[in-house]
Design a protein around this nucleic acid. Structure first.
Lengths: 117, 117
DNA sequence: TACATAGATAGATGGCCGTCGATTTGGAGC
DNA sequence: GCTCCAAATCGACGGCCATCTATCTATGTA
């Protein structure tokens, strides 16, 4: 059984002892994982990922009034999801008169993409 | 106001009419977005992303009994999170005697990484 | 001024999900 | 058979979150 390269309990140990040496997991990695998890969480809702998908398909910025009819959801619900995406730093918005235009911030997605790779 | 390249309401329209032409959003893209959202959702919990982080730091496979003491969580909770990751196709496991060894399936992460890029 | 419209916010509701302790499963060894 | 142990599953609880309707804010127009 080739467990040499693997992280396995080191040996048989007396009952009552902890099962194995704790693996080190540095705080820096922990913090970055938490940051990435926050971005992933925002993308974890199908509607939000679809919003991102639509937004980045357009070079410019997309009016909210174009986004709402794409989904079988109320306007406040879409507005809520856009806010979640904005709070996660995935999109940003810009107001022009009555209209609000949303656009993707590519760096945030790139950051997660790089972490996953 | 330069909205030429942007997705903006096309014109003033009579009251009562829908606010704008619906943007086309093909079902294929919708389906893939939903698949990617499922993966992102599984990664959206800090503990789960940390589990993935630990697993991929090791070339081989990691025993559950090594993972549990890394977090301030009960054994059933860690087991639950591992199951969520496995159901999403992000990790898989292999039993050897009393121990269970988990490992990352790199393709799934690559797929999401590519989608984000 | 008043009115209409786009989008954001507030508050309520229902369901999902993370967590736990208790129990079960299944393999190892006696 | 029996016991011990690692891991998974069960059942319950509590909090978070997606959704809605209703309302508010802000801007444009008459």
């Amino acid at each position: 059984m080739a467990v040499d390269l693997e992280l396995a309990p080191k040996q048989k140990r007396p009952a009552g002892e902890p099962c194995c040496e704790p693996v080190v997991y540095p705080d820096i990695q922990r913090q970055q994982a938490e940051r990435m998890a926050a971005v992933a969480k925002a993308l974890g809702e199908p509607i939000r990922l679809q919003l991102v998908d639509v937004l980045r398909k357009h070079a410019g910025k997309v009016c909210v009034c174009e986004l709402v009819p794409l989904f079988d959801l109320s306007q406040p619900t879409v507005s809520h999801h856009l806010k979640v995406l904005r709070d996660a730093g995935i999109v940003d918005s810009e107001r022009r008169g009555l209209w609000a235009f949303y656009y993707v911030i590519p760096e945030t997605l790139k950051e997660l993409s790089a972490w996953l790779k």
